[in-house]
Design a protein around this nucleic acid. Structure first.
Length: 702
DNA sequence: GTTCACACCCACACACCAC
DNA sequence: GGTGGTGTGTGGGTGTGAA
């Protein structure tokens, strides 16, 4: 066990010792570190081994100069960090070729020849596309860069790379192979998977590190606005001849990024099924398998979430990294929990039958008991029981008594033992404890403990009829087809594997990122721009400003309807649109307040599903309805309260002639694009929203 | 023979509903 | 309101076939 636990930034002790024996294998080489994570560690490795660290990124291809990153976004010679760690580990300057990363945007491909085996790298870097030395294509990347989440960008990049650089897959495979060898060398343990057994393995320190995914640091992104889904669509044209496609490094990073942002769902099937919507070459099954078998070893950290699974941010508004994994959605019952449940239920039965406290032996019968208490007592206690003749609790056996056991019991028990819900405790009692036998399990547990053995929880007690259809947890292609839009436009370039973003996932990575940016991240974008003045945000800012100005002007006209004047439930609120929870609200105002509260929360791009679920769970809005509304709003959450206010007020769904709410007619007019139609649309929605809507059309989201 | 993508399985935790 | 029935999907796998 190392002393440098939980420290990504420092070379581990055993590694440092090894480094001391080196004599500068990186001598003469200069590295610029583009990734933040583990930067200090790699810097220390380079410096200790005779290399130099560049504080600024090279502007052009130079001998001896390399960018160290996980992804080549600079269109300059970029080397995977594994080159450093593997070279250091083997005390040899390795062949850099397999570690050179292809540019992600279709820029020039570099070939690196290796010279004498015992000398510096012969850095004869050439452009495979004809030897052009210019790096103007990098500007194209930046030109297309907006405030997108890196995760969605990564998918586009994956597609772009596989399209433009089919030959690059070989290099990636080599790099991946090296990574696997490293995992094998160091046992492949993830300390993040088990914080109690941490050791500072080299794997921990040198595993593939991704770029920073905080929204405020999206300058490592590389997808053009509105292009991610299209890039995903066309990526299938690069499928290998067989029906299985390898996972690209970018796909791997995308998967890891989404997992990091949904740590509580890391073991679910649905998360990976959702990911598969954005990774069209792979099914949810295969992506989950990929994560479980390979990628989980590289997780390294996740983003901190609160008790509701929502991402937390620090004072700078950035996500908080942690190597402590949060609990999953379900917890297995332990033997201790089973035993405590059995004992507590036995105590409850004892109390009921004898009306005596099993711990103190005192009678629970009082002269001033309420009539209802007396009545209840008569229902549960043994009619043949003679007070004072009750057995001691240890002598008492539950035998075949199964109840009654009040819901209140499980409610209280769940509150006292929050490791499982009230329903889960009750189900454990019904399905396991009753089948096993309360007395039997208590006896088994105590016997095992008395013999210094570890008792096991109850298992194999469920015996339910096999359900028809595919087994649960099977997210294969057949299921994926279910989500394909029958009305989706088929681009001529798309193959038979054409895949569209399903309506249920309306707020895809890109779109919700866009909306989130409009709504909350303007200031961050501005600060980011000041940090990276070469990254243009004019378009997004103009658009955001336009929409924001429109919204402000519209507020007086469309948002000032007094909800107290709208009777609740409103006329158009039918059960096909709303769930029973909706009808529990007392007033329209109360409902709208809840909607306001939800849309003002912070939802990350990868939590679109959670947003829709929250609207369902807390407002009683059916998922299909909320997604259809969000479609009409082009995903702009700010307009959501207005939608309900106007729909309820005018009994129209969707409400007509309301800015920001797109009707079918509006969409038709936008498609036709005649001057008159466009004038009307500009008058209604403004140019900003029209631009945004066009993206929805371009991406088949309408 | 090995690796990897993908399909498939199933016990069970948690939930909801009807009687 | 206690109870049984059952829906859903998590959690943790294994099986299969292509390369």
């Amino acid at each position: 066990m190392s002393e440098s636990q939980n420290d990504f930034e420092t070379a581990p002790d055993h590694f440092s010792e090894e480094l001391k024996s080196h004599h500068g294998i990186f001598h003469g080489l200069k590295f610029y570190f583009a990734d933040d994570v583990n930067k200090d560690f790699y810097k220390s490795v380079v410096v200790k081994l005779g290399g130099a660290v560049l504080e600024e990124a090279p502007k052009d291809v130079k001998p001896d100069h390399y960018i160290v990153s996980h992804v080549n976004t600079f269109d300059l010679p970029t080397v995977d960090p594994l080159f450093l760690s593997n070279s250091a580990e083997q005390n040899t300057l390795l062949n850099i070729g397999p570690f050179i990363l292809p540019p992600v945007n279709g820029g020039p491909q570099y070939e690196v020849d290796v010279g004498e085996s015992d000398s510096r790298i012969d850095r004869r870097i050439t452009h495979a596309n004809g030897g052009h030395d210019d790096v103007d294509s990098a500007a194209d990347v930046r030109q297309s860069l907006a405030h997108h989440d890196v995760a969605s960008a990564a998918v586009a990049a994956a597609a772009a790379v596989s399209l433009t650089h089919p030959e690059s897959s070989h290099a990636r495979q080599e790099v991946k192979q090296i990574g696997r060898q490293k995992n094998a060398t160091y046992g492949g343990h993830q300390k993040i998977e088990d914080p109690s057994q941490r050791d500072t393995t080299l794997e921990q320190e040198t595993s593939l590190i991704q770029h920073d995914n905080n929204p405020g640091n999206s300058n490592s992104g590389f997808a053009a606005v509105g292009e991610a889904p299209k890039a995903v669509l066309t990526s299938s044209s690069n499928l290998p001849p067989h029906n299985k496609s390898s996972f690209t490094e970018e796909e791997d990073e995308f998967i890891l990024d989404v997992v990091r942002k949904n740590p509580t769902r890391r073991t679910t099937h649905t998360l990976f099924d959702e990911i598969s919507h954005y990774v069209p070459n792979h099914t949810g099954n295969s992506i989950r398998h990929r994560y479980r078998v390979y990628l989980s070893k590289r997780l390294n950290y996740v983003y901190k979430v609160d008790e509701n699974g929502k991402l937390m941010r620090d004072e700078k508004g950035e996500f908080i990294k942690t190597d402590i994994l949060p609990q999953g959605l379900k917890r297995k019952f332990t033997a201790d929990e089973d035993y405590q449940l059995a004992v507590n239920i036995k105590k409850q039965f004892y109390k009921d039958i004898y009306q005596v406290d099993p711990d103190t032996g005192e009678s629970l019968i009082r002269d001033d008991d309420e009539p209802s208490t007396v009545a209840k007592r008569k229902m549960v206690m043994d009619p043949t029981f003679i007070p004072g003749k009750e057995p001691g609790f240890d002598e008492y056996s539950v035998c075949d008594r199964r109840g009654p056991l009040s819901r209140e019991f499980f409610k209280t028990y769940g509150e006292k033992h929050p490791s499982h819900t009230e329903n889960a405790w009750r189900d454990r009692f019904r399905k396991f404890l009753l089948n096993y036998g309360i007395d039997e399990y208590i006896s088994y547990y105590e016997t095992e403990r008395a013999n210094n053995r570890i008792p096991e929880p109850m298992k194999n007690m469920t015996n339910r009829v096999k359900r028809p259809g595919p087994a649960p947890g099977n997210y294969n292609n057949a299921k994926k087809v279910k989500f394909m839009s029958p009305t989706a436009h088929q681009p001529s370039s798309a193959s038979a594997n054409h895949y569209t973003i399903p309506q249920d996932d309306l707020l895809d990575e890109e779109t919700l990122s866009f909306i989130t940016g409009l709504k909350r991240d303007l200031s961050r974008m501005e600060s980011q721009q000041s940090q990276s003045p070469d990254v243009p945000f004019e378009y997004t800012q103009e658009l955001a400003e336009s929409i924001r100005n429109n919204f402000t002007m519209e507020e007086t006209q469309f948002d000032n309807i007094n909800p107290d004047e709208i009777p609740f439930p409103p006329q158009i609120a039918t059960t096909d649109l709303f769930m029973p929870e909706f009808f529990h609200f007392a007033t329209t105002r109360e409902f709208l307040n809840k909607v306001h509260e939800i849309v003002n929360r912070t939802y990350h791009t990868s939590q679109a599903e959670k947003l829709v679920e929250d609207l369902r769970d807390e407002c009683g809005i059916r998922k299909a309805f909320s997604t259809s509304i969000l479609t009409a709003l082009s995903g702009d959450l700010m307009v959501l309260p207005r939608y309900f206010l106007c729909a309820f007020r005018y009994s129209a769904n969707p409400p007509m002639n309301v800015p920001g709410i797109w009707t079918k007619e509006d969409d038709e007019m936008l498609k036709n694009g005649s001057d008159d139609d466009m004038k009307l649309l500009i008058k209604k929605h403004g140019t900003g929203r029209i631009d945004m809507r066009k993206r929805f059309h371009q991406n088949d989201l309408v």
